[in-house]
Simulated assay, not measured.
Amino acid sequence: MSLALCLLILVLPDAALAQDLSLDFGDTGSLANRSVEIILLVTLLSLVPGLAVMVTCFPFVVTVLSILRQALGLQQSPPNMVIVSLALFLTWFVMDPVLTKAWTDGVQPLTEGKIQVEEAIPRIAEPFRGFMANRTDPKTFAELQALRPGETSTLEEAPFSLLVPSFMLSEISRAFQIGFLIYLPFLIIDLVVAAILMAMGMMMVPPAVVSLPFKLAFFVVANGWTLISSALVRSYTGG
């Protein structure tokens, strides 16, 4: 709930937040205007899941887990729902300090009437900005910034329109690097099995079918899911 509210306030215009969205159709607005406001509010609420993907570690985590499933040679196991759910809860675990700071510094004082919207929005955005700036590759940021001639800014001061795509591209690139390292041991198992089958003259037997049990056994013995998940979390917490 706190994630949704924080991200919603980040994208809501000041004017929209300042307006009363009650259904009082008196002198303050017509039925058509109120209907448009409600439609816009519902639309913004529907964008919250997408915003959560953009400004959190979810792209990195779900990409690594998806590559891991492909490396195991499994197409639908675990199902997509399980992969996404695990990625969401790992994201929640990693992002909890950021969400807590955004809530205590911005959302809670705003809901209690201690600060105005104009002051709350920078307070809510600051933890997310710091998180993304720390994870953004400076080279990727510089390449995107070069597409805006005459505009110069640092990672800490960059607009979200520049910082968010730089952050997402950096996370996806880092996820593929980790995915390459994850893929190697399973690739070695495939090659060894294929060489053994060829030496035995069993060329008609698909190597992937024979190697799958060995890859699963290797992954289970290594406690792979816990090992990978803890490594992903430590990459953010530095533990």
Rank of each mutant, 00 (worst) to 15 (best):
M132E: 06
K101E: 14
P97N: 10
A125S: 15
P78W: 08
G130F: 00
P79T: 12
E151F: 14
S77Q: 10
F167T: 01
L187F: 14
L72D: 02
S166Y: 02
T152Q: 14
I188H: 10
R129Y: 08
W92F: 10
F167Y: 08
V61T: 06
F89C: 07
F160N: 10
S66N: 14
F58G: 00
S66W: 08
P79L: 13
F176H: 01
F128R: 08
T152A: 14
F180T: 11
R148Y: 14
D96I: 04
L74G: 01
A158E: 07
G113F: 11
L74P: 02
N134C: 04
I121D: 00
F186I: 07
V107Y: 07
I121R: 14
Q70A: 12
R148D: 14
F60I: 00
F167N: 01
F176E: 01
L65D: 07
S170N: 02
P185Y: 08
R174I: 02
C57S: 14
P159C: 12
D105R: 03
F186N: 07
R174C: 03
I83S: 04
Q76M: 11
P149R: 12
E156R: 02
E126N: 13
T154V: 00
A120Q: 04
R69D: 12
Q75E: 11
A146K: 14
N80K: 08
Q177F: 00
L147S: 13
Q76H: 12
K101H: 09
V82Q: 02
N134V: 10
A125L: 12
T152I: 11
T111E: 15
P138G: 05
L144E: 11
T91V: 01
T152K: 14
V84I: 13
E151P: 00
P109Q: 03
K114P: 07
S153Q: 13
D105P: 00
S170A: 01
W92I: 07
F186M: 10
Q116Y: 06
F89P: 06
W92V: 08
V55F: 03
M95P: 05
S170R: 00
F141E: 05
L72M: 08
A71F: 07
N134F: 05
P109I: 04
T100G: 07
L88W: 05
W92H: 06
